[in-house]
Write a protein that binds this DNA or RNA. Sequence first.
DNA 1: GGGGAGAGATGCCGC
DNA 2: GCGGCATTTCTCCCC
Lengths: 245, 245
Amino acid sequence: MDFELFERLAHDAMRSSHAIVAFVSCEVSYSGRAETFLERGDRILLVKPDRSVLIHQPSGSVPVNYMKGGSELSLERGEGRIVLHAAHKAERAWLDVSVFAVHGALSQRLEDAQRLDLAGNERDMSDWIRDNPRCIGEGFRPIAREEQTDVGFIDVFGHDGSGTLVVVECKRVTASLSAVDQLRRYVERVKRARGTQQVRGVLAAPAITPNALEMLASLGFAFCRVDPPKRLERWARDQKRLGEF
Amino acid sequence: MDFELFERLAHDAMRSSHAIVAFVSCEVSYSGRAETFLERGDRILLVKPDRSVLIHQPSGSVPVNYMKGGSELSLERGEGRIVLHAAHKAERAWLDVSVFAVHGALSQRLEDAQRLDLAGNERDMSDWIRDNPRCIGEGFRPIAREEQTDVGFIDVFGHDGSGTLVVVECKRVTASLSAVDQLRRYVERVKRARGTQQVRGVLAAPAITPNALEMLASLGFAFCRVDPPKRLERWARDQKRLGEF
DNA sequence: GGGGAGAGATGCCGC
DNA sequence: GCGGCATTTCTCCCC
């Protein structure tokens, strides 16, 4: 595919809000939050109708360069190349993609009003703890979930029935030192705000690293093993793999 | 484009390690770290030679669903659909893309041996502080950079000339509460390891949030304004935008 | 392989 | 818009 075809495709796609995908040989420069340069190679270029730009190398699931939606886009014809400029003034970011060859390109108008339905996040987990308080301790009584403080929100807040306040921090994956930091910050804030030293800290997660457990113990907090709930997990069970490549 | 063509393209691409891009109408199910479902709509499907899979909606710069490289891929023909299965046993993750229509598709062999060259990250910043210690304080003497402890590494470690140890934590963006937590953890660790209370904590960043500054002060630590160095920032200055769409 | 932390993190929600 | 934080975070580095 030559430059003229690519240029016309890109122009038409931009005008009519199509998405563009292209296999190109290119080099890439970026300046914004950092400065990057990527020498010439074959990549996948993706331009969406919201004027976001993605550049993917042949390996890896993360784009090597990108611009968020809302960029100003322009094409410039150079010597033996065509340059896609993307400028995001609000973010003070610039991306230049110098395309030396176009191996193939497509554009398409896309219709999609759907939103992702997700189960098994941390909010589901704190919901579950609120509805199953016994997992935290025999007398645990939840008062609030996602209680706002000025240093962040407490996942589950309650008391143990004998007047002692309980702060629960949830993690849906193995808890690390930063989770203990977070819990400590909330407990200190509650102690100060309520004028009491009677505040227990509980870290609820499926697992915890040894260092985090040691720090937790040194602060007098408790670990409580809880797995994140996955409400839709039936569908993938016992699925059969047919037509293996 | 019909299913037979798409199926043949996909088969051939898999066999010869091509990348595939396609505009498809599809629904998507994922089960792994969480469970997700996405109802039918038009999306961009990307399958790379490393067997990573990306699904992009028309908007946004982040894929709505994905699988990392190393998945097992298979195609299954169903009623009015063709299903791409991706299974990652090590991660216990499964992705099913049910394709109802193929608006267009391409495959291509890609050659790319280049790696991204980046300037302006936090390591550049701690390098710069080590080489320009006066920015931390008049008598600051750096000893080590990225000093390893069992609770993380200290960005810059030194003393102030009068025997007091100094721990510097760098952030390349506005420092928040978690940066203060990190600094506190390192200072406590150094106090314990060296058996002294004479340890100063310094947070170096271009800015700091009010809450973080308050917590920093309450711990007796200091803030020090430092901007991250960008060594390649010349290229993007004064660039002209030609051929605006 | 696990732990810890940075990332051009991104995106969401609450104030 | 800022602040705080989860993320199917991802990736890198070091032990």
